[in-house]
Nucleic acid binder design. Structure first.
Lengths: 325, 325
DNA sequence: TTGAAAGCGCTAACAA
DNA sequence: TTGTTAGCGCTTTCAA
């Protein structure tokens, strides 16, 4: 039943040349006479030839696949990042092998899975690859880049939003709004980004941070209940992310009858869609996910050609989006 | 530099057998003596052998890859569906090849890309595959399933939420809340799902639907401005999706000072996170994305073993989530 | 039960 | 510039 598909051999026959010439022509590699080249191209087109990526990859010991590792957590920011990553990958003619991991163990098995496909690179947006895993990749010449997380590993490039700059922008904004007592809302045992933002904050402001029990809308509500119980003792708040900010804002407004941009100012992080809903209009910091994605691909290809180049750490600018909080 | 990785040959040598035995043992295919089997397993484990998926797939003419086609549109519902799809795929030991398409043309090139990787199946969540594309897949024995869309093609299985049931649930709810003049908010030139919901609605209620200019929060606002301008002439509204519902609700509340669950009732669709925020608390219909995903994988594997089985159309139950609207 | 050998479709070194 | 040849690592008849 399953019809055999058209191979380079067929094209070679049709064009009256050898398969080697076909290969050279189609991969633009090695020299072919102009006329021959055209013959091959025509034949390939006529027959509807499609190269078999499996065979090609097997031979080249490298597939046109790039592994993208994400955690189940589907918050709007992550979705946006993923979308931009996939687009960047496809723009370079690669394809995205999407791997969802739940646990640290998953990361290990996933990374070996990816090596079995001889991926051209791995982009980690969740979890922390261990040294052995990475060295395994290095051995196989597979570059690894991590996004919004750090690692000690020397061969792994890092890309993240500039959280320090973010902290500064948030503080400047709050002060400009006249706030005198600033506060930060982080997450207990939170994500790497939340921790970094907290650290960045603490370098600039001494106030001990508020901590939400979890990184979510509900976490923001819970944090607000605790924080506002004894009265409002701050007038400017920076939240580690927008979901927290929305939760905090709602609890403050509906349970404690506080008014945003009046009783206190609030800055979020991520610029997720909800923040621009009429009922929120939250001031926030927008990450440049497109640039992060583009940079990830650049780093991957740089390291592909020179596995041992020095580790690079990129900080991508964030942008303050001023709304009504 | 790049160390050659361990092959079946190495394992064979180490175990003192032929590579054929190694292959049989590891793929559980053909017979191997118990003792030999153990020897091979031990050797493989000791050497840390990992099968080369490229070689295996080339030989079997089929990779452990499943193509997932999505459109750039990252609304929360789509993200959730994607996540569930990827999990289901990984649960079956396959890997997800994620392809983002923008235009109809992209679908075509993407589908041929996928065939080049000899994927074991394709899941389409966006766009409408043409007859030729599908027949190309059929020829290569690649099953195709579409989610939340329909197609005339006989070899393509369809899975979607039961929109008719959804319409009925929404209407029942609104009537139970005492609504007398029901209305539906669809989308002008909208998604397939929105159209189906509209059709389902119209079979039950004769009222001509409202139409938003686009499928988004802003679309909902725009629709509300038009609809409410001349006064409120309905008391129960069903929106094609939650983003529209949020926009409509906000415009109604903030611009027209209407009260939800008082001046009119509103039911959404999708149960996206924003709907359960304190400031919305929208009643909505939840799609069972996990079941949709699981079903997609089932259909794919069924068709894989019998390409010509009759086309199947599955409707997955939706669930009314009653909140405060 | 095991091994030898052919082949999946492609690339690349080498020779012509 | 072209063709020949030897693999890439695996699976799978077919004999032994």
């Amino acid at each position: 039943m399953a019809k055999r598909s058209i191979t380079a051999q067929d094209v070679a026959l049709h064009a009256g040349v050898s398969r080697a010439v076909v290969s050279r022509t189609l991969s633009n590699n090695g020299c072919v006479a102009k006329a021959t080249r055209q013959k091959v191209l025509d034949a390939a087109h006529e027959l509807g030839y499609q190269v078999n990526m499996l065979a090609q990859s097997l031979n080249r010991q490298r597939s046109m696949l790039i592994g993208v590792i994400t955690s189940g957590q589907t918050d709007p920011y992550r979705s946006q990042l993923l979308e931009d990553l996939v687009r960047s990958i496809q723009a370079q003619n690669y394809q995205a092998l999407l791997c969802d991991i739940q646990t640290h163990q998953d990361l290990a098995t996933t990374l070996t899975k990816l090596t079995q496909f001889r991926v051209s690179g791995v982009i980690v947006t969740s979890g922390h690859p261990s040294a052995e895993l990475v060295s395994e990749c290095v051995k196989l010449n597979i570059p690894v880049v991590v996004i919004n997380r750090s690692t000690q590993l020397p061969q792994v490039d890092e890309i993240s939003s500039d959280n320090t700059q973010g902290a500064q922008l948030a503080i400047n904004y709050l002060k400009k709004m006249g706030c005198q007592r600033l506060q930060f809302l982080g997450i207990n045992n939170g994500t790497y980004s939340a921790q970094i933002r907290q650290t960045a904050w603490q370098r600039l402001e001494p106030t001990p941070p508020l901590l939400a029990p979890e990184s979510s809308y509900e976490g923001g509500i819970a944090a607000a209940r605790v924080a506002l119980q004894g009265g409002l003792n701050f007038d400017g708040l920076w939240c580690a992310n927008d979901l927290l900010a929305c939760g905090f804002a709602d609890c403050a407004r509906f349970e404690f009858k506080l008014k945003l941009a009046q009783d206190f100012y609030l800055v979020g992080f991520d610029d997720i869609p909800s923040t621009h809903f009429v009922s929120y209009q939250l001031t926030t910091l927008r990450q440049n996910t497109r640039q992060i994605a583009a940079l990830a691909l650049s780093r991957l290809s740089e390291r592909a050609s020179a596995m041992t180049v020095e580790k690079r750490i990129d900080k991508v600018d964030v942008k303050l989006i001023i709304r009504n909080s």
